[in-house]
């Protein structure tokens, strides 16, 4: 007997499209807001200490505040607070690259490159409609290994390891874009607030890592 129920299927498709649309809408607004706070931070010439404090605060909100507010309208405010803090924390890094003679070019290339990577990977998942949920465990293990290596490199200070880590982070975050987008279109993620934060973090990390790599190969200092 065929259990296919067209009304349930249509409702589900409409619901998935709604989550996807809301996620991309919120993501675009948070990216703009993040760019605004990064601009303010650059103008104020905030220090790296402030940047680190902003990252601590944003991570604290992701871990302790977002899970409690993701299902309410307050969740949207929390997403803006998180992305605003992370954007503000980018100020010192951007000022560092702007001080190079080709700094604006490096930043623009990283920004454009991040956008193209995101659009291409999202387009790939939306077109193929493949389920990439099997990648979850591997991506998390990869992320943990990368973070362990980052901790080690704070003490070891090996430039080649730093370059390898930035490359690995780009690949892991690209995997997370495939994973998160596939979860949205296959109904695994129904909360657009959580989906937005996941995609934002992937974009943020790709941008910072790409900037680091391009700074090494194209920086003139």
């Amino acid at each position: 007997m065929n259990n296919f129920n067209p009304s349930i299927s249509t409702t589900s498709a409409v619901s998935i499209n709604k989550v996807l649309r809301n996620t991309y809408l919120l993501l675009s607004f948070t990216l703009l807001f993040s760019a605004l706070t990064a601009g303010v931070s650059m103008m104020l010439h905030v220090s790296h200490v402030v940047s680190l404090v902003c990252s601590f605060a944003a991570m604290g909100m992701i871990w302790f505040v977002l899970p409690r507010t993701a299902n309410s309208s307050a969740g949207i405010g929390v997403v803006f607070a998180i992305t605003g803090l992370l954007g503000f924390g980018l100020g010192p890094i951007l000022n560092h690259y702007l001080a190079l003679s080709n700094g604006p070019e490096l930043i623009a290339t990283s920004l454009g490159g991040t956008g193209i990577i995101f659009l291409a990977l999202s387009g790939y998942v939306l077109t193929t409609k493949r389920d990439f949920s099997f990648m979850g465990g591997f991506l998390m293990v990869g992320l943990i290994i990368a973070i362990l290596a980052m901790v080690a490199n704070i003490f070891l200070q090996i430039p080649a390891l730093s370059l390898a880590l930035s490359s690995a982070i780009i690949l892991i975050m690209s995997g997370f874009i495939l994973f998160d987008t596939s979860r949205i279109i296959n109904g695994g993620e129904t909360n657009y607030v959580n989906a937005t934060v996941s995609l934002y973090l992937s974009l943020y990390n790709i941008f910072v890592s790409l900037l680091h790599i391009l700074g090494i190969f194209g920086g003139d200092d």
Binding site: A120, F132, S133, F134, G137, S174
Partner: peptide
């Protein structure tokens, strides 16, 4: 996530490698 993720089926990893190689080439 590692212990509860669904297992990959045949062709799944190929479908991941293709876009990731594209990212490597683009970078």
């Amino acid at each position: 996530m590692f212990f509860n993720s669904p297992k990959a089926e045949s062709g799944d990893w190929n479908a991941v490698l293709l876009p990731l190689l594209g990212v490597v080439g683009f970078v």
